[in-house]
Simulated scan of single mutants.
Amino acid sequence: MTHVHPSDGAAAVVHGEILAEERVDALLEAVPARDRETRPDALARAERQRRRWATQIVVADELARRACTERGLEPSAQAAPHVLAVDEADVADLGSIVAVVLAYSPAARTLLAQLADEQDLPEAAVRDYYDRNRDRFLTQDALRRGVDPFGGAAPADFLPYADVREGIAHGLRQAAGRRAFFAWLDRARAGVVYAVGHEHPGDPSHPDHEHRH
C-alpha cells in the first residue's frame, strides 16, 4: 500500500486531495477509548489501532460527502463528533467500520438511502421471499397453536401476502441498498492513499495489523 508522509499534516489523500489529520483528531477526542489495556506497550498499540480505525470512519465520511455532491443530494448538517450509539445487530450485519460510518456520517446515511431507493425490485422477488419464508408469516393464532408452517398449516394460518408485501419489499430493498453501499465504498476507497500511522487496521503492511468485524 502507498503512503504519504505524516509531516504533510494529512491522514490520507482522497482522490488527490488532502484529508486533514485534524479531522481524525477531532473524532478521537470525541469518542473515548474503550480499551482497558494498562501495559504501556499494549496501550500504545491500542491507540495506534484506534487512530487507524478513526481514519477509516473519516475517509468514508469524506467519500460519502463527495458522492452526495456528485448526485445532487443534500445530507443534513454534520454535527460535531460525538459518542456514537451503534446497534450490535448493525455491527453483525455491516461490520464495525461501516456500522460506525453510518452512525457518524449524515452523508453516508443519505447515500445509503438513495442507493436503496434506486434498487430495482421485481414483484416476483417479493413474492418468492414470501413463499420461501412461510414461517415468518404465521398469524398470532397459528403461533399460539404451534402450527408447523411447512407441514399441516392451512392458508388461514398465514398473514395474507397483500398485508405483508410492503414490509417484505422494504426489507429486500434495504438489503440490496446495503450491498450497493458496500460495493460503492470498496470502489471509492481504491483512490485513497493513507499516511503512515493511518492505514486500515487490517492492512498487513504495518506490524499492528488486525482484521475483525
Rank of each mutant, 00 (worst) to 15 (best):
T2V: 13
H3A: 13
H5A: 14
P6I: 05
S7W: 12
D8K: 14
G9H: 04
G9L: 03
A10E: 09
A11V: 07
V14H: 00
H15K: 05
E17P: 01
E17S: 11
E17R: 14
I18C: 11
I18R: 15
L19Q: 05
A20L: 11
E22Y: 04
V24Y: 04
V24G: 06
D25C: 05
A26Y: 07
A26V: 10
A26N: 09
L27I: 06
L27T: 06
L28A: 06
A30M: 02
A33Q: 15
R34M: 11
R36E: 15
R36W: 13
T38S: 12
T38C: 08
T38W: 09
P40L: 08
P40A: 10
L43V: 15
A44H: 10
A46Q: 08
Q49F: 03
R50Q: 06
R51L: 07
W53F: 15
T55D: 01
Q56S: 12
Q56C: 10
Q56F: 00
V59H: 00
D61T: 01
A67N: 09
T69S: 13
T69Y: 11
T69N: 12
E70P: 04
E70L: 11
L73F: 10
P75C: 02
S76T: 11
A80K: 13
P81A: 08
H82W: 06
V83S: 11
V86Y: 02
D87Y: 03
E88K: 13
E88L: 13
A89N: 08
V91F: 03
V91R: 15
V91Q: 07
D93N: 08
D93M: 08
L94N: 02
V101G: 04
Y104V: 05
S105D: 01
A107I: 04
A108V: 09
R109D: 06
R109M: 09
Q114D: 15
A116F: 05
D117M: 12
Q119C: 10
L121E: 00
P122I: 03
E123H: 12
A125M: 09
V126M: 02
R127K: 11
Y129Q: 06
Y129E: 10
Y129G: 02
Y129V: 05
R132C: 07
N133G: 03
F137R: 00
L138Y: 06
T139W: 03
T139N: 04
Q140H: 12
Q140R: 15
D141I: 09
R144H: 12
R145H: 10
R145D: 11
G146R: 10
V147Y: 04
G151K: 14
A154P: 05
A156Q: 12
F158D: 02
P160F: 00
Y161Q: 03
A162F: 02
A162G: 06
D163A: 10
R165P: 04
E166Q: 14
G167I: 07
G167D: 11
I168V: 03
H170G: 09
A175P: 02
A176P: 01
A176W: 00
G177R: 02
F181L: 12
F182K: 13
F182H: 14
A188M: 04
R189K: 12
R189A: 08
A190G: 11
V192I: 00
V192T: 01
V193T: 14
E199P: 02
P201Y: 04
P201V: 05
D203L: 00
S205N: 07
S205P: 01
H206T: 00
P207R: 03
P207K: 01
H209A: 14
H213K: 13
H213S: 15
